Amino acid sequence: MEIGQLEQLLRARFAGFFPEHTPPLEEHPAQLAEVPAAAPPPTTWPALVERGALVLPTRRAAGGLGLGQPAAVLIAELMGAAAFPAGAYLDTLLGLDLLDRCRPSAERTRLLREVLDGRHRIAVGFRDGSADRAPDTLPGWTDLARDGDLLRFAARFPAVVSADEADTLLLVGAGVGGVLPLAAGDPAVLLEPRSVLGQRRLFDVDVYGAAVPWSALLEFTAEPAAVWREVLGRARLRQAAHLVGLAGGALDAAVGYARNRRQFGKPLGHFQSISFRLAAATARVEAARLLVRDAAARSERGEPTATAAARALAFAADLGRAVTAEALHVHGAFGMTLQSGAQRYFRSAATESVWLGVVPELRKLVPA
């Protein structure tokens, strides 16, 4: 399917859904530093799954409809444009990518089927540092040993998105050639809520003295580091698309405000100092959109993803911060109040831009 046709399909399916399910402005980030943050309404996730947000981009071999990475980046962009909290969705796609690269087994098949159906929630533990560090290498374990038919381990996974809503934690780390699924309600699991990071509800996951059957390990089909590079690259493309969406949504809000707000008897947008800045921002957003979509299409054709994804995310991260800041400036002092959507886009872009690696580290992954 051509990207234009796919975009029309997805806009018809999701463009009205995301604004409808985005939290009201007065419930958004400023007063939201409480720990833990309130979970979204319980109907939001089932409705999102029912519309096909998970099954559409997932490969047919894994139980999806096979529209692939182009569909995933378009959905992520639409989420960003509406300032919809996308963290749980993006990390679920990361988890599905990991499961898709594991050897066939009854447990893998069950998890894939139930997650795609919306009957099962997963959260992914893949960090061993703070959320603003590049997760380019798999984290280590505090303790890891095989004891007969059991695998015993202890570890700390910071900044796991929506861990309290998950049925299963998917844990990845160095020295284990696959994914360790662990029931979120296991007595060995302790969740510690963190302050809200942008729109992500984060929990530190501490695992003490866990024991799972060795047969429960979902083994990767290739060398773990190579699998992780590929999966992380795909996640970075979706993150880049989300940032493009945030920038585009902020720009639309700024254009609307400049069209309606009057100064000295005429709309604010009639002043060249404003209109030229908005035009420049529009060109940058469109350039980033094309870069991300091209990288997604190349990834779907089987071309290497890691370098292109790092380039796209670095570009989109810079863009997201710059354009949302520009939109905030156009709104003036009103833009910093909770009645304005400009502060929501700005706040979200500032935090989402570091989620899968800060720009200087991402640029090191791109050949000069």
Results as ranks from 00 to 15, higher is better:
289 R>V: 11
288 A>K: 07
264 F>R: 12
264 F>G: 00
298 R>L: 10
250 A>K: 01
283 A>P: 02
263 Q>S: 14
261 R>H: 15
290 L>S: 10
298 R>S: 12
247 A>P: 05
287 A>L: 06
232 L>R: 09
282 T>M: 10
271 F>T: 08
273 S>D: 13
302 G>S: 10
299 S>T: 08
248 G>P: 10
260 N>F: 14
269 G>A: 00
232 L>T: 07
292 V>M: 00
229 R>T: 12
258 A>P: 05
257 Y>Q: 02
267 P>A: 12
274 I>F: 08
297 A>T: 13
229 R>P: 08
231 V>D: 02
292 V>H: 01
255 V>Q: 12
233 G>V: 08
273 S>G: 14
262 R>D: 13
226 A>G: 01
270 H>N: 14
295 A>W: 01
279 A>Y: 09
271 F>W: 14
232 L>M: 06
298 R>T: 08
291 L>H: 01
227 V>T: 12
245 G>S: 03
281 A>E: 04
239 Q>E: 07
289 R>S: 13
300 E>H: 07
243 L>D: 01
260 N>S: 15
243 L>W: 05
230 E>P: 06
255 V>G: 06
255 V>Y: 04
243 L>Y: 00
290 L>P: 00
263 Q>L: 15
275 S>V: 03
234 R>Y: 02
249 G>Y: 08
242 H>R: 11
250 A>I: 07
292 V>N: 06
262 R>H: 15
241 A>M: 05
259 R>E: 13
272 Q>F: 09
245 G>I: 03
234 R>T: 10
250 A>H: 08
284 R>G: 07
278 L>W: 03
258 A>W: 02
271 F>M: 09
294 D>L: 11
225 A>T: 13
258 A>R: 04
280 A>N: 11
278 L>V: 03
236 R>E: 10
245 G>K: 06
262 R>F: 15
284 R>N: 09
248 G>N: 09
269 G>Y: 04
234 R>E: 12
294 D>V: 11
244 V>C: 15
234 R>D: 09
271 F>Y: 14
280 A>M: 12
260 N>T: 15
